[in-house]
Structures are given as structure tokens and as C-alpha cells.
Simulated assay, not measured.
Amino acid sequence: MPRRMTETKEGTHQTMINMSFESRVVSWLMQDGWQVFSPVLDNGHQTDILISDGPNYHRIQIKTVEASGDDHVMHNKWQGSNVDVVVIFARNSNWGYVAPAFEEDTRPLNHPEHQKFMQSKNEFLKAFHKL
């Protein structure tokens, strides 16, 4: 049976964890019938995933946070970009939020425009469709 025998650097390991959340969203959206595209480079555009239903395209930014509760304040790292939706995962728990991209510098996760979900496909898609 294969076993990883090398140590992964801490920064690299965190990047791998963050990418795993992006992969979850890609999988869930594909299962929902969306065409999903991954930019070769998202530096400057803040787009982790581009989705389409055919005629329409939407930019999605995925963020992970260490959140102790729903009132955690999210910092806007996509300001000035064309991002449409932000998906926020609590790394240290089993929930997240789907939010329309906002212009403020900060906003609490439990803002009325945000939709909370438990980290499962059905819960995520239910929250995503409410936007």
C-alpha cells in the first residue's frame, strides 16, 4: 500500500488544504450541471473558479478562515476585481458561507446577504441557489 514518506513543508501543506476546498466546490458545481473552468493563473483577477451555464459566466473566489463563530469578520481580498461570488469555508469546523462579493473592507460572515451551509454538496448547493 502506498505511504507518503516525505515531510510536507508547513506553507505547502496549507496551500494543499486550501486547494482541497476549491476542489470540493468544483465537484459540487459540476454535479449540479455547471461548466467549471480553472484559471491557469488567478493572480490579480481573484478568480479561483469560473462557472458557466452556457450564455452566462460567473467568477468565484474561495476563501478559508479560522473562524470561532458566525460573527467572524471577513476581510475583502477581492476588492476591485470582477468576482461575483465568494465561498468561505471554516477550516476548523464543518460549515461555510456563500456570499455575493461585497465592496466593504470587512463584513461579518453572518451578514443577512450571506447563506450558511454545512460542508456537504446538498447544503452547499441549497445555499448557492439562494444567492
Rank of each mutant, 00 (worst) to 15 (best):
M1N: 15
T6D: 10
T12R: 14
H13T: 14
Q14F: 13
M16W: 06
I17D: 11
I17N: 01
N18T: 12
N18V: 04
N18Y: 02
M19K: 15
S20G: 13
F21D: 08
F21I: 00
E22C: 06
R24C: 11
S27R: 13
S27F: 11
W28A: 03
L29E: 03
M30W: 02
D32Y: 03
G33N: 12
Q35H: 11
Q35K: 11
S38G: 10
P39G: 09
N43K: 15
G44Q: 07
G44K: 11
H45Y: 05
D48W: 08
L50H: 08
L50V: 02
S52Y: 06
G54I: 13
Y57D: 00
R59K: 12
I60G: 03
I60R: 11
Q61W: 03
K63F: 01
V65C: 02
E66D: 04
A67K: 07
S68M: 12
G69M: 00
G69C: 07
D71G: 10
H72W: 09
V73L: 10
V73G: 08
M74Q: 10
M74E: 08
H75V: 14
K77F: 01
K77R: 03
W78D: 02
Q79G: 06
S81E: 00
N82W: 08
N82S: 09
V83E: 00
D84R: 04
V86H: 01
I88M: 08
A90D: 07
N94H: 14
W95A: 08
Y97R: 05
V98R: 00
A99G: 02
A101F: 05
F102H: 11
E104R: 10
D105Q: 14
D105N: 13
T106Q: 09
N110C: 13
E113H: 12
H114V: 06
K116F: 01
K116D: 01
K121R: 15
E123H: 15
F124P: 06
L125R: 13
K126D: 06
A127H: 12
A127T: 05
H129Q: 14
H129D: 12
K130P: 00
K130T: 01
K130F: 00
K130E: 01
